[in-house]
Simulated scan of single mutants.
Amino acid sequence: MKTTGRRHFQAGFTLIEAMIALLVLTVGMLGVAAMQLKALQGAHAAYQRSVASLAAQDAQERLWAQMSENGDLACPSWADAKDLGDTSWYDTWKERLPGLVEESVDPPSGVPAPDCEFSISVKWSENRFVGEDSPVFGYTVRLPGS
């Protein structure tokens, strides 16, 4: 049997093809891993915004409860409402939102805002996203008190 020179010339070509295919597959897998990381970060940010929304609604409920406790539809003060119940508002939410700012309701003093309006700004620190500011969830509540 005679071998041709052409067959000998193509002997290593399939190995090069396999190496290039492996390189393309590796780059694709790195892209998938980066997308998965971004998806996990986005899911975590959405989770924290949901918790911040619940914290803001809890602050609103505490204001309503304080107004109900007064019994005369007078506008409540956040200074009294934040410590209503078994635990304070801050102690309830500080474990769920790392770096939660304690004074999140404006006005924080005993003086109610005009038209009994409160601005709730739930702010926490997020150290998973490098280079981004601390997230803030804004919520405005107007109670029927005077």
Rank of each mutant, 00 (worst) to 15 (best):
136 V>N: 03
108 P>Y: 13
40 L>H: 02
22 L>F: 13
28 G>M: 02
40 L>K: 09
122 V>H: 01
146 S>H: 06
27 V>D: 01
30 L>P: 08
53 S>H: 01
100 L>C: 08
87 T>D: 15
113 A>L: 04
54 L>V: 09
5 G>S: 15
106 D>I: 13
95 E>H: 06
32 V>W: 00
71 G>R: 02
37 L>M: 06
116 C>H: 05
116 C>F: 04
69 E>Y: 03
88 S>F: 02
52 A>M: 09
5 G>A: 15
47 Y>E: 14
59 A>I: 06
4 T>I: 12
59 A>N: 05
115 D>I: 05
12 G>E: 11
145 G>E: 14
106 D>R: 14
7 R>I: 10
113 A>G: 12
98 P>S: 14
64 W>S: 10
69 E>D: 08
137 F>Q: 10
39 A>W: 02
106 D>G: 07
64 W>K: 15
121 S>I: 11
41 Q>I: 10
127 N>T: 15
69 E>G: 00
62 R>W: 03
86 D>M: 07
64 W>F: 03
111 V>W: 00
66 Q>A: 10
136 V>P: 14
10 Q>P: 00
40 L>G: 02
43 A>L: 07
28 G>V: 05
100 L>E: 06
93 W>M: 12
67 M>G: 12
37 L>A: 10
77 S>Y: 04
27 V>H: 04
13 F>K: 05
54 L>N: 11
79 A>Q: 13
75 C>G: 01
120 I>G: 07
136 V>G: 11
1 M>H: 09
136 V>R: 08
100 L>Q: 04
140 T>M: 06
77 S>C: 03
51 V>Q: 05
47 Y>I: 08
83 D>G: 09
93 W>G: 06
113 A>H: 10
8 H>P: 00
35 M>K: 01
26 T>N: 02
1 M>G: 09
28 G>I: 04
80 D>W: 07
34 A>K: 08
143 L>E: 13
48 Q>F: 03
91 D>G: 03
66 Q>Y: 05
29 M>D: 00
67 M>Y: 01
105 V>E: 01
16 I>V: 08
28 G>P: 04
9 F>Y: 14
33 A>D: 02
90 Y>S: 03
9 F>L: 15
145 G>N: 08
78 W>H: 02
107 P>W: 06
30 L>A: 09
58 D>W: 01
86 D>H: 15
111 V>T: 14
108 P>F: 12
114 P>R: 15
22 L>Y: 01
60 Q>T: 02
87 T>V: 07
75 C>T: 03
8 H>V: 15
144 P>T: 14
132 E>C: 10
138 G>L: 08
65 A>G: 02
115 D>G: 05
19 M>N: 06
2 K>C: 14
76 P>K: 09
104 S>L: 07
120 I>D: 06
37 L>T: 12
70 N>Y: 05
138 G>H: 04
30 L>D: 00
118 F>N: 08
8 H>Q: 15
40 L>R: 09
131 G>I: 11
80 D>N: 11
133 D>N: 10
87 T>H: 12
